Amino acid sequence: MENLKVNQLMEIVFEGDNFREYYPVRIENIDEKAIHMGMPMKQGGIVRLKIGQEIRCVFRNSNNQYYGFSTTITDIIKKPFPMLIAEKPSQMSTINQKRAYVRLEVTLPIQYRLIDDSNDSADDPEVFHNGHTVNISAGGVLFSTNMRLETQQHIEVKLYIPNYEPFCCQAKVLRVFDKVDSKRKYFWVAIQYEEISDAKRDRIFNYIFEKERELIKSAYKRQERML
């Protein structure tokens, strides 16, 4: 059985008839019978769970293999920060990597250039067009730009994730939305990463996780000041 470790990131899976979403959490402690983990968060708010609820968790080991297990919540701690306590799993199973990543609404700079089907630049390779993110996930980005792109178009994007050096990856345009305000016409472009290393994807994943933690800590501090 793969070993879980303190401070390891994993994800809690929520599934419905037509959706599957993954929420990042960190393992805070492990004892003989239980796993202590942070509460899952979405857009700065806690995802509500209850004692006795069964949850599905997934994590990736050092060999980039994904494992999953089911467990039951045995307790919920609210202070000093929200945390779940769940039964330590007796068995795990390997799973595939296809997933719907959690998105974070955040404005970050982004640059892109067009590439053709042979992965050669359709633009000047030294010239990138500018935009900014509307939201971002470890699976793709929704960004705003003044240039209209076409669905199924291939682009190279340069991402500027705080606390990391900028990095590039290839992506495909999934959808384009026309937008208009009082001053100009612009476009929202939804892209999915096509060629991205696990290390680069982890940078995005870790940034989203830490940002969500900051948001929930701020929300709890505001709540405590009001009491």
Score class of each variant (00 low, 15 high):
residue 101 Y to M: 05
residue 14 F to K: 15
residue 152 Q to A: 12
residue 108 L to R: 11
residue 191 I to L: 07
residue 213 R to H: 12
residue 15 E to Q: 15
residue 214 E to D: 13
residue 174 L to F: 02
residue 118 S to C: 10
residue 53 Q to N: 09
residue 24 P to H: 10
residue 137 S to G: 13
residue 30 I to H: 03
residue 176 V to N: 04
residue 118 S to T: 14
residue 128 F to A: 01
residue 19 F to E: 10
residue 210 E to K: 12
residue 190 A to W: 01
residue 164 Y to E: 15
residue 41 M to D: 04
residue 50 K to M: 07
residue 88 K to P: 05
residue 133 T to L: 06
residue 223 Q to P: 00
residue 145 T to A: 10
residue 24 P to T: 05
residue 40 P to Y: 00
residue 90 S to E: 15
residue 50 K to Q: 03
residue 185 K to P: 04
residue 20 R to A: 14
residue 119 N to V: 09
residue 132 H to A: 04
residue 22 Y to R: 13
residue 95 I to W: 04
residue 68 G to Q: 07
residue 134 V to G: 10
residue 39 M to C: 13
residue 196 I to W: 03
residue 7 N to E: 15
residue 183 K to R: 08
residue 91 Q to I: 02
residue 21 E to H: 13
residue 202 D to M: 06
residue 106 V to N: 09
residue 179 K to C: 14
residue 177 F to G: 07
residue 115 I to A: 00
residue 82 P to G: 01
residue 129 H to I: 03
residue 6 V to L: 06
residue 110 I to G: 03
residue 8 Q to G: 12
residue 71 T to N: 00
residue 113 R to H: 01
residue 74 T to S: 04
residue 70 S to K: 07
residue 152 Q to L: 10
residue 61 N to G: 11
residue 65 Q to K: 06
residue 78 K to S: 14
residue 172 K to M: 09
residue 153 Q to W: 07
residue 184 R to I: 05
residue 164 Y to R: 06
residue 146 N to I: 10
residue 64 N to P: 08
residue 86 A to I: 06
residue 79 K to R: 08
residue 159 L to P: 03
residue 207 Y to Q: 01
residue 7 N to Y: 14
residue 122 A to W: 03
residue 212 E to G: 00
residue 193 Y to V: 03
residue 150 E to L: 13
residue 67 Y to W: 10
residue 198 D to L: 14
residue 172 K to S: 14
residue 225 R to T: 08
residue 144 S to W: 01
residue 29 N to R: 15
residue 74 T to P: 01
